[in-house]
Design a protein around this nucleic acid. Structure first.
Length: 289
DNA sequence: AGGTACGTCTAC
DNA sequence: GTAGACGTACCT
């Protein structure tokens, strides 16, 4: 991977193809992939140059320019992955930036991070691909399985309005000819979605093995297990109690979460759907196929 | 131990 | 059907 990274760090190299061709340890397949990648990079570099040459380059413009032609449903300033494309433009992912990995239970328990500088634009210095290997994606996905609330928090912080699909079940990114950083960012930068889809994926895989799912069927003593919020529905993404609903007002006696934060999945009767399968994976992968 | 919140029961 | 109260699982 280090060889690959060094080969791909070509931001300031005028003749990248020449640089790549001098990598004598590349197989034919790898070389062609790199050349394809380089062509892609040239395309996106041309976007950058266009905006650079035409003055200001607002963040929304960057996002719209990159996402809209690829995904028609993308809104201005909002990628279809609910990704702000910050990775593409330099923000480090949670996997890279440990300051973004802490679990937030709710607002009152979420503390600020003094001394943490705001993310800066640094694409010109750091090739974003160097941080986006599957080796990075997988541990993060696993980690986020246990961090739905963190994901919800981050989703709200980023003003995410829709759940997104991720690709964590896709073993490799090489087959996707979109800007790799954009797609990878979806998973890396939307822990809620990562948690949702990876969780769902693992859940489907583990359904037969999960004692919780078998408890009622296999034993005569069905231990009542509380369901957990999905973490991705609109109420779950909401972080702040309204303070005025009956649940908020009767916090002490009601023992209920704010009505506006009550998970949509939990409102349904248990068993009415596959529990804790918040994201339709078909919908998720429709972005890619 | 204490807080949060899901599940259930009951009253309306 | 809805709202409130309560038991208690789950988490820190």
């Amino acid at each position: 991977m280090s060889n690959l990274n060094s080969a791909l760090c070509i931001e300031n190299i005028q003749n990248a193809e020449v640089a790549l061709l001098h990598k004598d340890n590349l197989s034919d397949g790898g070389l062609s992939q790199l050349l394809e990648y380089n062509a892609e990079m040239e395309r996106y570099r041309s976007f950058a140059n266009f905006y650079k040459a035409n003055g200001a380059f607002p963040q929304t413009a960057k996002i719209a320019r990159i996402t809209t032609p690829i995904f028609p449903s993308a809104r201005i300033g909002m990628s279809p992955w609910n990704c702000d494309n910050a990775m593409l433009w330099g923000r480090k992912s949670a996997a890279i930036n440990p300051n973004r990995t802490s679990m937030h239970r709710n607002d009152s328990q979420r503390h600020g991070k003094p001394g943490v500088l705001p993310e800066t634009l640094q694409m010109a210095n750091n090739n974003f691909l160097s941080t986006l290997s599957p080796e990075h994606c997988r541990p993060l996905a696993g980690e986020c399985m246990n961090k739905l609330k963190c994901g919800a928090a981050e989703a709200e912080i980023m003003n995410l309005q829709e759940r997104v699909g991720t690709f964590s079940a896709i073993p490799a990114l090489g087959g996707i000819s979109l800007p790799p950083g954009v797609i990878v960012m979806t998973a890396l930068h939307s822990p809620a979605a990562s948690a949702a889809v990876t969780d769902s994926a693992f859940q489907i895989a583990n359904l037969a093995d999960c004692p919780q799912n078998n408890s009622s069927a296999s034993s005569g003593n069905p231990a009542k297990k509380k369901r957990k919020r999905c973490g991705v529905c609109a109420p779950c993404r909401r972080l702040i109690n309204c303070g005025v609903c009956s649940s908020c007002r009767n916090r002490k006696t009601g023992h209920q979460i704010c009505k506006f934060r009550k998970c949509d999945e939990l409102k349904k009767k248990p068993g009415s759907s596959l529990e804790r399968t918040p994201v339709n994976t078909g919908e998720a992968f429709r972005w890619f196929f």
